[in-house]
């Protein structure tokens, strides 16, 4: 138990002193699993980093200001819309989305879903791993899903900034951007009209589109439970429904773009109150 020799070695008793090391004992202290704290004072270490970052960034901004000035267009006139009318770049993703969806969806419901979905992330992610470091392999689903959405947002922005010209038509960088493009001769159709063209009755075609739309969400809600049983169990019922519901909503935008470009479909579902 006692390691008298070691104690004596480290701290020999000195009769002239009124204090001494009594005993060294082997055992577990409450600090054993922690590495020694390697901390520094915020003043000056962190504060200087912040100052340097701020000053550098400000210098960069001032440098930009010397050759690029804030734009100012003609005075507002309610009668003429500039052509093309481009929002600032950070809203061009939204503007591009509006080309494919009705305003109530692209302008309100999808943005609100995006923000609410973002807010819900910490409550939906049950994976405890990967806190405090750049982790890729430990949480593949979270990383892939988030990055897919984030990338989609940036792709829409890039399309809006670099590929949209007069009349919001598609322009390649090597096209003449001062010439109007001829309006696409392809005509847009609704899904139910296409189905009618295949010989379905009007009511039957309507119902077919409803069933297809519901099927879309059912597939997203059912398939993961079959494919990834463990992960689904981990999520629990409520989280599972929210996660895959939001996922299905996110996948709506690439799907609609694909349907529009590949099959000239304007709406894939038409109800008396709203159209998808």
């Amino acid at each position: 138990m006692a390691e008298r020799d070691t104690t004596e070695n480290i701290f020999p008793r000195n009769p002239k002193k009124s204090y001494a090391l009594m005993e060294l004992v082997k055992g577990q202290g409450f600090q054993t699993r922690k590495q020694p704290e390697d901390t520094v004072f915020v003043w000056p270490h962190l504060l200087y980093i912040e100052l340097i970052a701020a000053v550098t960034f400000l210098a960069g901004l001032l440098w930009v200001c010397t050759f690029k000035h804030a734009p100012l267009e003609d005075m507002a006139s309610a009668d003429t819309t500039p052509n093309p009318m481009k929002a600032p770049w950070y809203f061009l993703g939204l503007q591009e989305l509006l080309v494919f969806f009705d305003p109530w969806l692209a302008g309100m419901v999808l943005p609100v879903l995006m923000i609410v979905g973002l807010m819900a992330i910490p409550y939906l992610d049950v994976n405890p791993k990967g806190v405090g470091y750049w982790a890729w392999r430990e949480r593949p689903f979270a990383i892939w899903t988030f990055n897919f959405g984030f990338l989609l947002w940036w792709i829409f922005i890039i399309i809006g900034v670099f590929f949209r010209g007069l009349d919001w038509a598609w322009y390649w960088p090597w096209d003449d951007w001062s010439q109007h493009k001829v309006a696409s001769s392809a005509t847009l159709n609704d899904m139910n009209v296409i189905l009618q063209g295949w010989g379905m009755g009007a009511a039957g075609a309507d119902w077919a589109t409803y069933v297809l739309t519901i099927l879309y969400f059912v597939v997203f809600l059912a398939l993961p439970a079959v494919l990834w049983r463990g992960f689904s169990k981990q999520l629990g019922a409520v989280r599972y429904i929210i996660v895959w519901g939001l996922f299905a909503a996110m996948m709506l935008s690439p799907l609609k773009v694909f349907l529009r470009l590949a099959f000239n479909i304007k709406y894939f579902m038409v109800t008396p109150w709203f159209k998808l």
Binding site: S77, A78, F91, L98, P103, G107, M108
Partner: peptide, 30 residues
């Protein structure tokens, strides 16, 4: 705020989206 063309039309478009809000915008569903 600069009240130029971008201002007017960006706000026109943005608030038209608000108009299309379901339930509380007159051009939106319901």
């Amino acid at each position: 705020l600069p009240w130029d063309q971008l201002a007017l039309w960006a706000i026109t478009v943005g608030t038209k989206m608000a108009e299309a809000t379901p339930f509380i915008g007159y051009a939106g569903p319901w």
